[in-house]
């Protein structure tokens, strides 16, 4: 019968102490690695933007039709970000234009940002989709879209009359959702 020799008590104590000292270092390294890898910004269809509940970013610039547009609080405003090279935008825009016409005269404004797009292509796109009267602020470098925290196109924001962002949608907007959010923003204005 052999007796297995264990390390002396002094050595075991030191080993335990060293392990205890190393644990927080390893945990920290692990946490930093996890945070640094793979984590992406939330892109769920709605409610994801950190802008919700905060003042809307500035929206100012030259429009596709050659005018100047500056967003100012005072009316409920739907802000849509699109581009002519974006396929979902093509399917979404007619719906937006239809809703925009319904809202006209009811205290709701539709303003759009044409991001990272050529003026010629974008104007042709509006003609093709029957949206020639649309307010489309040009954003050739994408900086306006970034100011709105946009991750892709299309995206839609509902801003209440006080200039606070109330709702956000990623992708081709659901007209039922949009109508409901616009109505809710209007209700906030009147309450």
């Amino acid at each position: 019968m052999t007796v297995q020799q264990s390390a002396p008590p002094q050595a075991r104590r030191w080993r335990r102490l060293a392990i205890v000292a190393l644990v927080p270092v390893l945990v920290l390294v692990g946490v930093v690695l996890v945070r640094a890898s793979g984590e992406s910004v939330d892109q769920s269809p709605h409610g994801a933007s950190p802008l919700i509940g905060h003042r809307a970013p500035a929206l100012r610039g030259r429009t596709l039709s050659g005018g100047e547009y500056t967003y100012r609080p005072g009316t409920v405003t739907v802000v849509n970000i699109w581009a002519s090279w974006c396929s979902p935008c093509r399917s979404e825009l007619p719906t937006l234009v239809r809703l925009g016409r319904q809202w006209a005269g009811h205290g709701v404004e539709l303003a759009t940002i044409d991001t990272r797009d050529g003026a010629v292509l974008a104007s042709r796109f509006l003609r093709q989709t029957g949206a020639t009267g649309l307010t489309a602020v040009r954003d050739p470098n994408g900086m306006l879209a970034v100011a709105w925290g946009v991750t892709g196109v299309p995206e839609t924001f509902v801003v209440d009359a006080k200039g606070i962002v109330r709702a956000h949608w990623n992708g081709a907007v659901d007209p039922t959702w949009l109508s409901r959010e616009v109505a809710a923003a209007q209700a906030r204005t009147t309450s």
């Binding site: 793979g38 992406s40 910004v41 470098n141 994408g142 991750t151 892709g152």
Partner: peptide, 19 residues
């Protein structure tokens, strides 16, 4: 924001270019 494990410096996506 639209990539996996990529920084804005290392990406050529439209949003990264805008950023």
């Amino acid at each position: 924001p639209t990539c996996v494990s990529q920084t804005v410096a290392g990406s050529d996506t439209p949003v990264a270019e805008g950023m």
